[in-house]
Measured scan of single mutants.
Amino acid sequence: SSGGSSILDRAVIEHNLLSASKLYNNITFEELGALLEIPAAKAEKIASQMITEGRMNGFIDQIDGIVHFETR
Rank of each mutant, 00 (worst) to 15 (best):
A41S: 12
S1T: 13
R72C: 12
A47N: 00
F59N: 05
Y24M: 07
E31I: 06
M56H: 02
G65M: 08
F69P: 01
L35I: 11
S6I: 10
N57P: 11
N26G: 05
R10P: 09
R72Y: 13
R72M: 12
S19H: 14
E31Y: 06
S19F: 08
F69W: 07
I38L: 08
R55I: 09
G65I: 03
E53V: 05
L32M: 03
F69G: 02
S48R: 10
D9S: 06
S48N: 09
I51V: 05
Y24A: 04
G4F: 05
R72E: 12
N16E: 08
T28C: 03
A40D: 03
P39L: 04
N57E: 13
D61H: 06
L17D: 01
H68M: 07
D61N: 11
H68V: 09
A20I: 15
G33I: 03
I60M: 04
L35Y: 09
F29Y: 03
D61R: 05
S1Y: 04
E70F: 11
G58L: 03
L18A: 05
M50L: 12
L8V: 12
L17M: 13
I13Y: 06
S6T: 11
I51L: 08
E53T: 08
D9Y: 05
I66W: 05
R10E: 13
A34V: 11
E30K: 10
E37L: 11
A43P: 00
G33C: 03
T71F: 09
E14D: 04
V67P: 01
E14G: 02
T28A: 05
R55N: 05
F29M: 06
G58K: 00
I27A: 05
S2Q: 11
N16T: 09
A11N: 12
I7G: 13
I46M: 08
N26A: 13
K22C: 07
N16Y: 12
D9L: 07
A40F: 05
L36W: 05
I66A: 07
I7S: 12
G3Y: 06
Q49A: 10
Q49V: 07
N26D: 06
K42F: 15
N25Y: 10
L35K: 03
L23I: 13
N25S: 13
M50I: 03
D64W: 12
E44Q: 12
A47Q: 01
L8Q: 10
A40M: 06
T52E: 15
M56A: 04
I46T: 03
A11C: 07
A20Y: 15
P39V: 04
Q49P: 00
S48L: 10
M50F: 05
G33P: 01
K45W: 14
S19Q: 15
L18H: 06
F59V: 08
V67Q: 01
N57I: 10
Y24C: 04
V12N: 09
P39W: 03
A34F: 11
L18W: 07
I63Q: 12
H68R: 07
H15S: 13
F69L: 03
E53I: 05
L17Q: 01
E70C: 12
D61S: 09
K22F: 09
A20G: 02
A41W: 14
S6L: 10
E30F: 08
E30I: 12
E30N: 08
K45P: 02
R72N: 13
T28K: 05
I51P: 00
Q62L: 14
D61V: 06
L17H: 01
G54I: 03
N26M: 15
F69D: 00
S5V: 12
A43I: 12
S21E: 04
L32S: 00
Q49R: 06
R10S: 11
E30M: 09
E37M: 14
A47V: 12
A41F: 10
G54S: 04
A11T: 11
L32E: 00
H68G: 04
G54M: 05
I13G: 02
H15I: 12
E31V: 07
T71H: 14
F59W: 15
T71Y: 11
G58S: 02
L8S: 14
S19L: 15
Q62K: 14
I46G: 00
A47G: 02
I60S: 01
I66P: 01
S48H: 12
A41T: 10
F59Y: 14
I51T: 01
S2G: 12
S5W: 04
I46P: 00
G65W: 04
I63M: 08
I27T: 02
L32C: 01
P39Y: 04
L35T: 02
L36M: 05
K45I: 12
A41P: 06
L18T: 05
N25R: 11
D61G: 04
A43C: 05
R55Y: 06
M56G: 01
M56L: 15
E53D: 10
P39H: 06
L18F: 07
Q62W: 15
Q49L: 08
A43E: 00
A47E: 00
L17W: 01
T71G: 11
H15N: 14
D64H: 15
I13H: 05
E37V: 07
I7C: 07
T52N: 14
D64R: 15
E37K: 15
D9I: 07
K45L: 15
L17N: 02
I13D: 03
L36C: 04
E31H: 08
R55V: 08
E37R: 15
Q62N: 10
H15K: 14
L23F: 09
L8D: 13
K22N: 07
N25P: 10
L36Q: 00
H15L: 11
H15T: 11
D61A: 05
G3K: 05
D9W: 06
E70Y: 14
Y24F: 11
S6F: 10
S21T: 06
A40P: 11
G58Y: 02
S21R: 03
E37Y: 09
K42G: 07
L35P: 00
L23C: 07
K22E: 08
Y24H: 07
L18E: 04
Q62D: 09
F59R: 12
H15F: 12
I7L: 12
H68N: 06
E14N: 03
F59G: 03
V67D: 01
G58E: 02
Y24K: 04
I13N: 03
V12L: 09
I7W: 13
I66N: 05
K45Q: 15
K22H: 09
L17I: 14
K45Y: 14
